[in-house]
Design a protein around this nucleic acid. Structure first.
Lengths: 301, 301
DNA sequence: ATTAGTCATAAGAATAACTTATCATAATAA
DNA sequence: TTATTATGATAAGTTATTCTTATGACTAAT
């Protein structure tokens, strides 16, 4: 048993509906014998008659009626499966697990989530905020669908697309407002406050200053803390552009741009090359890019 | 679209479960390429990837998970369909529409319904009580599955089985108790009360008396009424054996058997020769026969 | 008695599904 | 690195299923 087919169920439903082999067959776009055979096959494999055939009419047996009710439900479920598929084919639906580094997440996500939800009704967004190495591992293991990180990541098995680049600005105590902006050489002699080990932004800042490491045990766990420390006069720090609006609102600090070439980093999106979502992730990346643009415009306005 | 098959869904479920083409194929008792092809076919017809394939692992995409949930429900429904079928194959389940003539129904049905329900848990019994011509028509039109009537019905398109025969007894006013039992010739001269036109029992009674019709407009609509009329001294009547216990309980009437050969009729069951229920109806007829036997024994005890 | 309507059956053609053999790729081991 | 192993994809050919057309059988209506 259990070799009944959806085809048989569809033919069965048609015959139950039309009560006439010829017309049911026509409705199924097949010949009458083809339908007769499938019905016969179905009844044979079930071991029960579904229809009573009489000279000029065909009707369901009692069992056939019960059967028809269930078959109707099943075929409707199959139809829904089709609808679900059609709805998901182009626009991404369902779960999307996205990882974001901590120096991007708090600033970009509010806008991004808003944009994604607006464009994509059926999206179930799971956000993971953690350091790049963890994101890379979880992405590789299939526990994330994509991640927003600083490029490059240089993983052979990942695709990456650049989204935007953001400059770094200098944050000094409020009292330093108006003082000349130091260049990278001078910066090395100032007390530069940094994020904890593991944050890519720490490495990017160090790299700009051409130093390998700093000795003092004052590393902060968030940009927000860094800015507070600068406000307290403990030292200076760098901030990615995107964080300025949020982080310097309340603290009394001075924000200065560096002379060209300004330090910067490139933010991009990565996913497994094998990911079947590649197509849609590329679309998503466009939304992310647009969210960053919107954010910047809001800031400048 | 819409040419996805149950086979594909079963293979899909197996692969989703095992996460491994080879083992899933083994579980489906097919070769690995066969499964690969069906999955590929499925994904192709859907237009979406269901699995992400990597070197040593295969997992569901987000859409695939949603898909799997629904597919699981559908396959379980199909399994239930099988169970329903297995349960219905031998013992009659579901709706059974049975017609019974009015001179049998009130006496036989209580016992019969009890027996059927006892033997047959899943039986949804619909009883129709009306005159033989109506029963025959509704049976022919497929609005009944079977009927219990007096034989013969002589319809070419019906099968009939005899169930039992029952004698007719004479019902006279209580005061006639002990008087000699008239034979059919004498009976013709007594005031014989009958059911309305259309009742087969009316014709059977007339036939026994060798008369075509009676003139008086005193026809009753039920045996119960007839007995009440006899009790009131209006005349005499005949009663089928099965009705005696119920109908003569309260009225003050005399019950007498005729001399051999006693008048009688044969009760049988009929159904369309084309009915797929034939097999089971034959079983049902055995239950009806047994119910009549039980009834008679109760009466004689 | 003949005709028309309807479903079943038969034979052969077209499709679909499967099997075995083989290839390609990537992770593991040497 | 290089060889090995595990695993899924592909190709070619076979088998099974499903379809079509032609025809038969039965029954109701003319």
């Amino acid at each position: 048993m259990t070799n009944l087919t959806l085809r048989q169920l569809r033919y069965f439903e048609a015959l139950a509906h039309h009560g006439h082999f010829g017309r049911a067959a026509e409705a199924c776009a097949i010949s009458q014998p083809a339908l007769s055979m499938q019905i016969k096959e179905l009844e044979g494999s079930l071991g029960i008659m579904l229809f009573e055939r009489r000279a000029r009419q065909v009707w369901l047996t009692g069992f056939g009626e019960e059967f028809a009710l269930r078959v109707g439900d099943i075929l409707r479920s199959i139809d829904e499966l089709d609808e679900l598929t059609r709805a998901s084919r182009d626009t991404l639906q369902g779960r999307l697990r996205i990882g974001v580094i901590p120096t991007i997440a708090p600033y970009l996500l509010p806008t991004l989530i808003g944009n994604l939800n607006q464009m994509n009704a059926g999206l179930d967004l799971h956000v993971r905020e953690t350091l790049t190495p963890t994101l890379i591992q979880e992405l590789a293991e299939g526990r994330l669908d994509t991640a927003i990180v600083a490029l490059p990541v240089s993983e052979m098995s990942f695709s990456e697309v650049a989204l935007f680049s953001e400059n770094f600005v200098l944050i000094r105590p409020g009292a330093d407002e108006g003082k000349p902006v130091p260049d990278r050489e001078n910066l090395r002699d100032m007390r530069l406050l940094l994020l904890e080990e593991g944050h890519c932004f720490r490495d990017q800042a160090l790299s700009f200053c051409n130093i390998q490491s700093v000795q003092q045990g004052l590393d902060a766990s968030s940009l927000s803390t860094l800015v507070q420390m600068v406000g307290a006069g403990i030292g200076v720090t760098l901030l990615p552009e995107m964080a300025i609006a949020v982080e310097t609102g309340s603290a009394c600090v001075s924000v200065s741009r560096f002379a060209s070439p300004q330090p910067s980093r490139t933010i991009g999106m990565i996913w497994r090359k094998t990911s079947p979502l590649a197509q849609q992730l590329l679309q998503i990346s466009e939304v992310v890019r647009q969210s960053a643009v919107t954010l910047r415009e809001q800031h400048n306005a």
